[in-house]
Write a protein that binds this DNA or RNA. Structure first.
Length: 661
DNA sequence: GTTAACGGTGTTTTT
DNA sequence: CACCGTTAAC
């Protein structure tokens, strides 16, 4: 691997299109197309590149692209894979449909690449009638589901029950494989049972599916209508799944159904990166793959191309502290030919704000002498910005971004926050979406209620009439109609904080809407995409998210949770808040399993870094810091403490932690 | 029917 | 501490 400095795209060589594969990767890529394949791939071993190359290999072997279904866990990962595949197959792109757009191409000409949910939504759209919905069904997000449960509880006069807990149970029920569902439902409290029944009825009545349905109802459909299942089995002859270690039981059932008795399934996973246990992911599914699929071919990738030796050793040191009773494939055997690199910096700050200041300062320092100017954020191409374009600040919880944003803002360092308050969850966007939803589907009570509550019953009627009288069905026209009829901008000025920013959000939405002619499709896309902010927190427009664009490509520091960062890599990574109670999170310290999942999070965070890794803490340093081998660490402190090491003593820690609050 | 103010509550991670 | 729901007043 050649040493690479800041490449413009921020990608390493092995991740680009058609690089030289190492022998193990080559073996994985060229494994028999119709046999099961398990790729056990540690962090930074080129796992996505290998999976992508395998898709390319299958196509070259004569598998029609439209027969390939590649499932990823995040939209971001899907976009990235899609981009790489499309670019390595110019002929695909240059066939009938337009090349650069990745949206809306017909399934016939390209592989399906997307999340389970995106895949499910697509199938449901086609067969909605079989499930008592019309193709124009809406997708309820978490918030909608929550409101619905709350409303049900209110109707039942059980207001004191916690909607969140009941919704959690409903979600767990929905994610139970169909065989076990009945037993699990019967075991629930009567209240949960009846809320569940009403909830399902409510969804159907309102022509809606919730997030879990996108998977659960497809599985149901497959059982109910074998002909439909056969159709998709016939279409998708080759299935590939990324992050297989994060599958839950229902996703597994779905996969099994789709694959049927064929064996053309390729999966990639790393047991050390299971971070969705809380969402029901079942590591057993990954571990039993070889037993599960007869004649499975297995390849282990253990050469890390991403990180320096110091970083890799530091991360391995941490993850080694996880002990499993099952025979897990450990990634601790990762090795690299990369340079030793700088030591990992452990920085002790005075507090959360001081930490943010320090991180921002470090990043600002990188910009000195690089042409960075204070107004550089208005000149996206200026050279200094490239120096930070492969820098990420990772944290455990979204709330942590606030302090960091403030510090970056003060220094005028461009940044971009991923996840967090979803674009589509913003009040102004939800208002518009509610209007669109109602206009598409007058049965949508939640939408109606939102409009009535936020405006007035009178205004709602005016709106309803307006929609009825203007049949232009384009999303753009309807948004416009809504904004004008409701006098929305004036309404915002009167009733909301920072109307300027909200206005820009609306412009962003309008811009996005321009690409769609069909309301249902537009709404579905929005609900699924949960698109990361196209605006950053101070309302400064960064640029609409181009298809296939990954964080590294932007001239801005990337801020995101560790969960979101899985699968990504950056030259420089700052992990903020490596503090007991934050990472591991206070709510995840109750059991060994939970702490181990937190430790895997720490591992994932550390292994995102290519060249420089900074672990920052305050108050009580995370126990995981004490697990980093000392000779890979360099301590810095604002507190005057001259630390050489952090010896973690469980009990003492416990005491100190408790005494802190 | 609508708005303003107050009090209580819950607070990880995501598709 | 921020968001919700309820209550009280208009």
């Amino acid at each position: 691997m050649v040493s690479k400095t800041f490449t413009k795209s921020g990608k390493t060589q092995e991740n680009q299109g058609s690089p030289a594969l190492n022998p193990d990767q080559e073996r994985a890529v060229r494994a028999a197309p119709d046999k099961p394949l398990l790729i056990v791939a540690g962090a930074g071993t080129g796992k996505t590149a290998t999976l992508t190359s395998r898709v390319a290999f299958l196509i070259k072997e004569g598998v029609p692209p439209a027969s390939i279904c590649a499932i990823t866990f995040t939209n971001k990962a899907a976009r990235e894979m899609e981009e790489r595949i499309v670019s390595s197959f110019k002929f695909l792109a240059s066939s009938e449909d337009e090349p650069p757009k990745t949206k809306n191409y017909p399934l016939k000409t390209r592989p399906f690449i997307g999340t389970f949910h995106a895949f499910g939504a697509r199938i449901l759209r086609r067969h909605a009638a079989l499930l008592g919905r019309t193709p124009g069904f809406v997708i309820f997000d978490d918030h909608d589901s929550f409101s619905l449960v709350k409303k049900i509880l209110k109707d039942m006069d059980r207001r004191k029950e916690s909607p969140a807990i009941i919704l959690g149970k409903i979600s767990a029920l929905k994610n139970t494989p169909s065989g076990d569902q009945k037993a699990k439902l019967d075991a629930e409290a009567p209240l949960v049972q009846s809320v569940f029944a009403r909830y399902e009825a409510g969804l159907e009545e309102q022509n809606a599916f919730d997030f879990d349905d996108l998977l659960a109802k497809v599985v149901l459909l497959f059982h109910k209508a074998p002909a439909v299942l056969d159709r998709y089995r016939a279409q998708f002859t080759h299935i590939l799944i990324d992050e297989y270690q994060d599958l839950n039981d229902l996703q597994y059932e779905f996969t099994r159904l789709l694959v049927g008795d064929r064996a053309s399934i390729s999966v990639v996973g790393d047991a050390e990166q299971t971070i969705y246990g809380w969402r029901g992911s079942n590591i057993e599914i990954f571990l039993r793959f070889p037993d599960d699929w007869a004649e499975a071919h297995m390849v282990t990738l253990d050469q890390n191309y991403r990180s320096t030796r110091h970083i890799l050793r530091a991360a391995s040191g941490v993850i080694q502290n996880n002990v499993y009773d099952t025979k897990v494939q450990r990634a601790t055997g990762l090795w690299t030919e990369n340079a030793e690199g700088k030591k990992v910096v452990a920085h002790e700050a005075l507090g959360e704000d001081a930490e943010a200041e320090w991180i921002a300062e470090q990043i600002g320092y990188r910009l000195q002498g690089t042409g960075y100017r204070k107004n550089a954020d208005t000149e996206p191409g200026s050279p200094g910005l490239e120096a930070i374009s492969s820098t990420a600040i990772l944290y455990r919880t979204n709330a942590q971004s606030r302090a960091l944003e403030q510090a970056l803002l003060r220094r005028r360092i461009p940044y971009r926050v991923y996840g967090g308050l979803k674009f589509y969850e913003r009040r102004e966007i939800k208002d518009i979406v509610a209007a669109l939803r109602y206009s598409l589907n007058p049965k949508d009570q939640l939408a109606q209620e939102r409009l009535e509550k936020n405006f007035s019953k009178r205004m709602f009627r005016t709106l309803a009439d307006a929609f009825a009288n203007h049949p232009d069905p384009s999303p753009l026209a309807r948004i416009d109609l809504f904004l004008k009829t409701a006098g929305y901008f004036e309404y915002m000025e009167r009733n909301m904080t920072n109307p300027r920013e909200r206005r820009e959000n609306i412009e962003e939405l309008v811009h996005f809407a321009a690409g769609y002619k069909d309301i249902a499709e537009f709404l579905g896309e929005i609900a699924l995409l949960q698109s990361t902010d196209n605006l950053n927190a101070n309302g400064r427009r960064i640029r609409a998210e181009a298809p296939g664009q990954t964080p590294q490509e932007e001239h801005a520091v990337s801020l995101m949770t560790i969960h979101l960062a899985k699968g990504l890599e950056f030259d420089r990574v700052f992990v903020a808040g490596v503090v007991e109670g934050v990472l591991p999170h206070a709510r995840s310290m109750g059991s060994v399993d939970e702490v181990q999942e937190e430790r895997r999070l720490m591992y994932v965070a550390m292994t995102r870094a290519r060249k420089e890794l900074y672990l920052s803490f305050y108050e009580l340093p995370s126990r995981f810091l004490g697990e980093v081998p000392e000779d890979t660490l360099e301590f810095q402190s604002e507190t005057g403490t001259d630390r050489k090491s952090l010896d973690y003593d469980g009990e003492e820690y416990e005491e100190r932690y408790i005494s802190l609050d």
